[in-house]
Design a binder for these strands. Structure first.
Lengths: 337, 337
DNA sequence: CTGAAAGCGCTTACAG
DNA sequence: CTGAAAGCGCTTACAG
């Protein structure tokens, strides 16, 4: 690759100091530099196709205008939707986003955090794996600006924005009971993530508050690693109980999709014999013969909030801000008889 | 934020030069440094939680181990799927990927290219907007390593990897004819992208070679900006012709999804009254009562090939390699009576 | 209005 | 085996 042109090259050609070139190209000291010289410098920069070396600039200014974003998997629609919101807003503010996928693996996430911090990212937005509390605590102690999204660790006081997961399922149960459903099951992952635990808690409390006795067979926690099969079995069992369930709640988007695929092939009638509440939004849910009622996360607002907190942290020093956002229950045919 | 610890800090504490610290931490000159000193340095680095400043390193070495990836829209499954493949492979090779979405907008893509080049990305992988040939030519002239994916400009001799778009639709038509379909329509975007043009050409040639007279009403090119409505109208019209079509080919994934949603609500029977061939893969296609036959792009291979060409270019200087990959026609119920 | 100079945190020939 | 020094391409007080 050809050597790129530097400030020095321009300075040399025009016959001024690099300082001067830097000033005019950055519009510093405006009015205090003669118009002719400024003009010459700009012309030469254009002629030589000058591109400021952002790396050198960053080394000096200690700012990279880079934000690291660690999601679970960029090819998952929740992650990529969030990423897109963050990317757009970051660009407006002059930042570039680097994203990486942690695969819910805390070792990988530790590697990614290292890489991002070593690259001097100005701040991080992280959707942390379940067992990442140590690394998050480490980041916190190092004083590196970051905000957690979607999940957080109740023990670590730091910036985060999360869904009100508890209420999301609580409200869903309330709605189902209101529609006359009485035996309400839930299929979710067997996993320690705080957000999943909260959804489970919302489900259980929802039953209780609404005067329904929870039957322990109603809650099915499926192994993440064998999910399609596990979800199918869970649903099959829920429908084969002595008193089968008449409604089912899915704990996240992937469980919803797998579950729906299976139910699609069953003779059961939705919503007459079985009501369904899904999590997150997917085209699939519109497509089902009884369009699905689903719990909608405010992706857009979550992304914007995350970046706004992060930039505040970056620009104004240590902050500790926690934001909980409400889900919207989008009610459609799958839960209304 | 606290000042991070630098080589100098370690050198100071241990009482050696920064040079020595650099050598041991980078495992240079192994065996030529006394074990005790090396040990001390490593201990101190760990104790002070040293993180090498990658920015400073890059300035010196002129390598950032960063690859820029510009897709159309990271929240589109084709883009995020490709991004994921590239991210994984890049990580294996020690590179980090920065991705951005161009929205098929050449001004935005120019801005992104600038930002990435100014950040000294070692190379770029680009899915270029239709009218980006100037900026691509510019990159080429600057000697910056890059490879185009999915689309390319026939006039610019540079690295690219693309689908054999022509054959993809050609084969689909051949299959349809083989199944007995005789009036075959196509719905696609009205857009100049080379890949779309090639798919159109494959469709037209497919008809010709297979002895079917093309009827000009069969080809519907829809405005990108009003796509759902436009696609619905197009399908409606194709089905209302004096001699209605008995098969339809969709020109890309988004057209396929919009089209399928509409057809789903129509009384027309698939595949008896209408065969459908979709483009790309989506869960939706499995879910339709007649699972869709679709044209499958080898995402994985395309991503791997792109990065392998790029790294070759980065490490071994100028290359010019063009790769065309075949699509696979996945035949299912929607085209088999 | 303009320039000489220091320094950001590294790496790496070179000398000893 | 180890260190002094130059330099990557910038920015920015400071001096004139």
């Amino acid at each position: 690759m050809l050597r790129r042109t530097s400030l020095k090259d321009i300075a040399g050609k025009v016959g001024v100091s690099t300082a001067l070139v830097s000033y005019v190209l950055n519009n510093k000291k405006e009015g205090r530099i003669s118009k002719e010289v400024a003009e010459k410098i700009r012309e030469m920069a254009a002629k030589l196709n000058y591109r400021p070396n952002q790396i050198a600039k960053s080394l000096k200014t200690n700012k990279t205008y880079t934000i690291g974003l660690i999601v679970a998997d960029i090819s998952n629609p929740f992650s990529s939707g969030l990423a897109r919101v963050i990317e757009d807003e970051a660009e407006k503010q002059g930042y570039t986003v680097i994203y990486c996928s942690s695969d819910e693996n805390s070792q990988k996430s530790a590697r990614l955090i290292d890489a991002l911090v070593n690259r001097q990212a100005d701040g991080l937005i992280i959707l942390p794996p379940a067992d990442a509390s140590d690394q998050i605590l480490g980041l916190h102690d190092e004083g590196i600006p970051f905000v957690l999204v979607d999940r957080y660790f109740p023990d670590i006081e730091t910036n985060w924005v999360s869904l009100d997961n508890y209420s999301s399922t609580f409200e869903a149960v309330k709605h189902l009971v209101g529609e006359g459903y009485k035996t309400i099951g839930m299929v979710t992952y067997k996993a320690p993530q705080f957000n999943l635990q909260e959804r489970k808690r919302g489900y259980l409390e929802g039953l209780k508050i609404n005067g329904i006795d929870f039957h322990r067979d109603w809650l099915r926690e499926v192994d993440v690693h064998n999910d399609q099969k596990g979800i199918e079995n869970a649903i099959q069992e829920l429908l084969s109980l002595d008193k089968p369930i008449d409604a089912v709640l899915f704990g996240n988007n992937h469980v919803s999709i797998c579950g729906l695929k299976f139910i699609h092939g069953l003779p059961v009638k939705v919503p007459q014999e079985l009501a369904i509440v899904a999590f997150d939004e997917t085209e699939l849910f519109d497509f089902f013969y009884a369009p699905l009622t689903y719990i909608k996360q405010p992706l857009q607002q979550m992304g914007l909030m995350a970046i706004s907190i992060l930039l505040d942290n970056i620009n104004n020093g240590k902050t500790s801000k926690q934001v909980t956002m409400s889900a919207e229950l989008v009610i459609r045919k799958s839960t209304v008889m």
